[in-house]
Design a protein around this nucleic acid. Structure first.
Length: 448
DNA sequence: AGTTCTTTGAT
DNA sequence: TCAAAGAAC
């Protein structure tokens, strides 16, 4: 008996090979590993259960089966393998980009039982760890990595065959669907939803991606992060579609996919960077204890409209526009002087697209501990960012109801409004100018 | 994937 | 007087 580990269905050559070549059949196993599942919020658990239900339906239409196993992946995969009288089993597991250790452990355990694990798939277009410098070292910097990644290339997506012969196996129910908090709305799950959204994005907004990607008010980004995260679409599919379209929109979009690959690669080589500092010298930075200010940030009560709008969008949709993620992250670290891990944990609790590599390295980038050589310290000004990227205030008014009636220049700094801060909206928790100076002084102390 | 201060040159 | 460009942080 042999196994393959792969997360994808849509354009998964491993699954297709199996469909086309055997009477032996295939069982897709989705392994929920509690050790890698934390910190997982209700958004992601809800979405995953929906996504698995859709995958199950899709497999059943083709005569296949999905089993979801919980617990220790090594023990559970071996147990499921012994229970199934099939010569081939596909194992789809959310190990994430740094899960190669898990694969090796599963591989060893299967080998002890006379079974072979064949790793064929990756949730990334180029598997983490594959792109190396001439000397075989991992890339440290994004730009050279992205060049090498593009040169390495990716194999083309494959259409699923119409008639696949699958072994019919008993179905194991997916994880129970958690109850969502009131008001939390999440996107539709499943491969079909992912493809539908991607195709409509290609036709509508991709051409303007380069010009509009930083505008949360226009909401013209693709919202594909969640589908990529849960394996409902493969970047190979997206890259092939992008390659067929010239222009700045597609190439800017490809650059963002490259960032996703790069961060997965960094995490693969430095699994410790999921929790700790990528640049150890930054660990000496002086932080304040999280307390009321952390709670104000989490609940969107900082008094800075763009920050509050983003944090409320996160709680209402399990998603936040990327530009706003950078602004709220900078605010937590540079204005409130709270260590980045507190923010990263809150994001992972609420983001439906929460991906360990992208999230942690995004936060490290903001904290100055990332791969970016950052010759200067970046401090976002939430008022300037608001005026620049939400010029009419549409985004803020949509998510901050207290400011819904406010027009004009003071919207992004309501404490300067002639009538004062509107009723029910908080005064700013800090003075940005002085906290910026404080942050720079603290950074000076660790870099000097 | 930043902000702010200064200089410059056109109005 | 002020926008654009450049340097410094």
């Amino acid at each position: 008996m042999w196994f393959r580990r792969d997360l994808r269905l849509a354009d998964n050559p491993a699954l297709l090979d199996a469909c086309e070549s055997g009477p032996d059949g295939v069982l897709a196993l989705f392994v929920l590993d509690p050790a890698l599942w934390e910190p997982a919020g209700v958004s992601r658990r809800w979405y995953l259960s929906r996504s698995l239900a859709a995958l199950d339906a899709s497999l059943r239409r083709r005569g296949g089966a999905l089993a979801v196993v919980h617990g220790d992946p090594v023990r559970e995969v071996v147990r499921a393998a012994r229970a199934v009288d099939a010569s081939r089993v596909h194992v789809a597991a959310d190990y994430g980009p740094y899960g190669h250790g898990r694969d090796l452990a599963v591989e060893r355990a299967l080998a002890a039982d006379g079974m072979e694990l064949v790793r064929t798939g990756s949730p990334y277009a180029v598997a983490p760890g594959r792109v190396r410098t001439r000397s075989g070292a991992p890339y440290q910097v994004f730009t050279p990595f992205s060049r090498a990644w593009a040169e390495h290339g990716w194999r083309a997506p494959v259409d699923p065959p119409e008639a696949a012969r699958w072994l019919s196996l008993p179905h194991t129910a997916a994880a129970p669907e958690p109850r969502l908090p009131d008001g939390l709305q999440l996107p539709e799950a499943g491969e079909e939803s992912a493809l539908r959204r991607w195709r409509s994005y290609l036709d509508a907004d991709l051409v303007d991606y380069d010009a509009e990607r930083d505008r949360p008010d226009l909401d013209s980004t693709s919202h594909m992060s969640v589908h990529l995260k849960w394996g409902e679409i493969h970047p190979r599919t997206m890259l092939a579609d992008l390659a067929a379209r010239p222009g700045t929109g597609p190439s800017a979009y490809r650059r963002e996919l490259a960032f996703r690959e790069f961060y997965a690669d960094v995490l693969f080589h430095r699994p410790d960077s999921a929790r700790g500092y990528l640049r150890p010298q930054l660990a000496a930075l002086e932080y304040d204890e999280p307390g009321d200010r952390l709670r104000a940030w989490q609940e969107g009560r900082t008094g800075f409209p763009l920050v509050d709008a983003g944090m409320r969008q996160l709680r209402a949709r399990g998603w936040m526009h990327n530009r706003v993620r950078m602004v709220v992250a900078s605010f937590l670290v540079k204005d409130l002087h709270i260590e980045w891990q507190h923010g990263a944990r809150h994001f992972m609790r609420w983001l439906v697209d929460g991906d360990l590599a992208s999230n942690m390295h995004g936060w490290q980038w903001v904290a100055g501990s990332g791969t970016d050589p950052a010759p200067y310290v970046r401090v976002f000004n939430p008022v300037v960012q608001g005026r620049r990227y939400d010029p009419d205030g549409t985004y803020v008014r949509r998510w901050v109801s207290e400011l819904a009636g406010l027009e004009g220049r003071c919207l992004h700094e309501p404490w300067t409004c002639p009538e004062g801060v509107p009723d029910g909206y908080p005064d700013p928790v800090v003075d940005h100018r002085s906290e910026r100076a404080e942050a720079l002084a603290r950074y000076e102390r660790v870099s000097g």
